[in-house]
Amino acid sequence: MAGMDIGIDLGTANVLIVVNDKGIVLNEPSVVAVDNRIDEVIAVGHEAYKMIGKTPKDIEAIRPMMSGVISDYDNAEKMLRGFIEMLGNKKGMGKIVMPRIMVSVPTNINDIEKKAVQDAVKHAGAREVLLIEEPIAAAIGAGIDITVPGGNLVVDIGGGTTDIAVISLGGTVVSKSIKTGGSKFDLDIIRYIKRNYNVIIGERTAERIKIDIGCAYRRREERFIKITGRDLTNGLPKSITVSSLEIMDAMSDSVGQIVNLVIKVLQDTPPELASDIAERGIVLTGGGALLYGMDKKISEMTGLRVRLAEEPINCVALGTGIALGSVDILEIAGTV
């Protein structure tokens, strides 16, 4: 389908794709599986994710994104090409030929990282590549009118990064980014289990723990989960039970880093915009925003009202898709 516009939320954990007015048409893990014997992609997305930690020596399941940017250029390109081909196989889509693609990127990434994204997407089949900062896209996707004069504070907690920005008149006034997000929470859990139980678990198990019992703020009722890992003493499988309080403790430093950065952005915000934010509150987006109690934790530490966006995981992708229809306005504001 020639002339198609595509919006991509190119995340560390997941890739979401929006096509024109169709909404989100693809939501897949940011994973590609490669057969190194023949240098050929054998799976992308969910099918590749199932292979993590379970592949034979000649097949590798790779996450080519790290901390919100491309860490493995060749495999990122292969993954993107696979997703675009996947779109073409969907019913009613037709063959996708040289689309214009807008990609969301973390705020404050450098020119080399930007060029890596642009080149990878271009080589995956785009005729034109536009970039938009994730907090801007997240704000648009959360239903915020970013074109009006007035401060809005958006905290987008993704898989690899947390991007925080004060937005007014279509542009970013103050912004900061930290390489802490959902993947760092998983790593915190893996390290805690290893240190306290002498048991090794994989990232999929850590993610399940985070989703099921993880919290940034103490739960009203403590929760428990039974997991199985490998005992470092004898190498055999071992089952243990961990509590939500333990997992909150495991992630406390990373959660604290995010909260402290929110406070720093507020401290750097001009007084008039700070007044707007005090009235409107803070908007949370991204998959990491779903961590139990994250809104309560930020609210407690800032004294401000914190609102979880209606579709936090989808906000950046939806906003990127909407922004494609307003490129001229955003270019004037210097946003894309």
Rank of each mutant, 00 (worst) to 15 (best):
P237W: 13
S326K: 14
G303Q: 11
A13R: 02
E246V: 05
K184T: 14
N14D: 11
A124R: 04
D156P: 05
S71C: 13
S71T: 09
S252W: 10
E133W: 03
V97A: 06
A274H: 09
G82D: 03
D74T: 08
I140W: 11
V173M: 10
I24L: 01
G94C: 13
G171L: 06
E246P: 00
M4K: 13
I190W: 09
N110W: 09
I146F: 05
M1V: 09
G235P: 03
L26I: 09
S30Y: 11
D268Y: 14
I8H: 02
T228K: 06
L304T: 00
A309E: 11
V15T: 15
M65K: 04
I109W: 06
D58N: 12
A126N: 05
V262E: 02
V41Y: 10
A323K: 03
N108V: 12
A165W: 10
S254M: 05
L232T: 12
Q118S: 11
Y192G: 02
G170E: 01
G235S: 08
K54Q: 10
A126E: 06
V25R: 09
K184V: 14
D156M: 02
E207P: 04
V103K: 04
R81E: 07
G88I: 11
G94L: 15
E246R: 02
N89W: 14
S239Y: 12
K176N: 10
G171T: 10
T180P: 00
D253F: 13
V336G: 04
S244N: 02
S299P: 01
I167D: 01
E128P: 01
V103W: 09
E311Y: 13
I240W: 06
A250T: 07
G92Y: 08
K296R: 14
N110P: 05
V19G: 01
M51K: 07
M1I: 12
P29L: 14
M102R: 04
R230C: 01
R127V: 08
R307I: 07
E203D: 07
D249H: 14
M102W: 11
V32F: 03
E203N: 06
L16K: 13
M294C: 03
V44R: 02
I84W: 11
G171W: 05
A61G: 00
A137K: 04
K115R: 15
D231I: 05
T162P: 03
L261S: 01
T12S: 08
K95S: 07
A138S: 14
D328Q: 05
P29R: 11
S104K: 04
K22C: 06
I140V: 14
R195H: 02
I144S: 02
E279W: 12
R218D: 08
G286S: 04
Y49P: 00
T285G: 01
S168V: 08
P149I: 12
P312L: 07
I52G: 00
V154H: 05
S275H: 04
I144P: 00
L261M: 11
G7A: 10
N260Q: 13
P135R: 02
